[in-house]
Design a protein around this nucleic acid. Sequence first.
DNA 1: AGCGCACTACGTACGCTGTACGTAACTAGG
DNA 2: CCTAGTTACGTACAGCGTACGTAGTGCGCT
Lengths: 237, 237
Amino acid sequence: MAGRAAVPEVIWARRERTGRGPKPAYTRADIAAAAVRIADAEGLDAVSMRHVAAELGCGTMSLYNYVPRKEDLYELMVDAVSGEHELWEPSGDWRADVMRIAHQTRALMHRHTWMSRLMSSLYGFSPNALRYLEHCMACLDPLEAPHGTKMELLAMVNGCVTVYVSNELAVAERTRSLPWSDEEEQAVRIAYLGSQIASGAYPRLAAAFMEDAGPIDLEAVFERMLGRVLDGFEPRA
Amino acid sequence: MAGRAAVPEVIWARRERTGRGPKPAYTRADIAAAAVRIADAEGLDAVSMRHVAAELGCGTMSLYNYVPRKEDLYELMVDAVSGEHELWEPSGDWRADVMRIAHQTRALMHRHTWMSRLMSSLYGFSPNALRYLEHCMACLDPLEAPHGTKMELLAMVNGCVTVYVSNELAVAERTRSLPWSDEEEQAVRIAYLGSQIASGAYPRLAAAFMEDAGPIDLEAVFERMLGRVLDGFEPRA
DNA sequence: AGCGCACTACGTACGCTGTACGTAACTAGG
DNA sequence: CCTAGTTACGTACAGCGTACGTAGTGCGCT
């Protein structure tokens, strides 16, 4: 009977509508959509309570009727785009299905570049996340393994995809903010990194950077990474 | 000769000291140490320019002589604790060495719980990061593979460790902010998650959650994950 | 030797953030 | 019908990053 009211509750445990009083002017979906629109167009840092409220056309503080803290707004956003995952009838080939899931997740994170940043800090048992997880598990039905192992597989795949895309986006951001062209980029990288490497203190890094001169094929690397992860779960022959 | 001054430079390309004028009162190491102290004690969000300046005992704007943007302060912090990595003479057993590296990285991120948050957004070719990377590559000398593959291995290991610890910390944070004890935690999780699962819409998730009733052994899961990653790089027999 | 300038230090100020709080309007349940 | 629980929203506050201006300092050059 201790006061458990003052506790930070998960937003999904709250009912959306609560009977008494005037009907809410917006749904959670409206709010999430507005926030996603802003994040897509102007970046995650542009998502402020004021900005989202303005996008919706209501006063700033009205938002707090729907969303107790800003963090919950993020949760709404992640759930909303999690709903973009295509969920198909499992093919029977778990490897192919998981590959397809990974590629779709990557595409989704490229479409909403702020996702990878939010995913790594959120708890993530939103309704759409549950639906998505259930679909992933369904794809793993053909795999002979305990549920726990399957969950570990999914965690690893999701984790790898997230960090991979994070890196992709970080590098893209870095080169985009540079005023030089891609070809000159190489030269610029030499400016600092090269000065360090030329110092001779890092012979192996020097060798590594000399080796891959051409632009790396991000798709191929992604594919290779996934393959290796899944190899670890292949039943022993 | 186009104006390349207005460009966001990497802080490591800046010289720390520049001859003319009064001697700077602090070193980059001083500043990084102050910021790390604050982040460790009060969390990453407590690291503000004002707060760090106060910790150093100087005016807020004086910090900007050393650090052009706040993001660079983060870079300094990451580099500082990257220097905590123990670098040993490679044993000749690359698998064992990589395992040891991963365990140390995990320990480091538990010591500085804000690291995982920063690592996923930073570019990361700071001096200490280079030293660390070179050491990792040295550990991989016994592995018969091209440099590019070795880099991919390290990226995967580092990535997996980062997301793993992120999850660990997120869960810990969630349960810590709850006023209930660990045993009751289980019951609370049922409150929302259980209501969803009991709905019957997610049969596989239900089965999975029922299966692992006891507290999971985080060390064992970590070990297993690493093992699987490394398996993917074992030379084919 | 001494001038000039690059550099450090730092106070003030601006626009922005999340959100606590108080008030007015509204409507469903007893 | 009344009233209690909700919605809506304006105001206010503490804190943020940082642009800008000013004052003082000491190295490098003439």
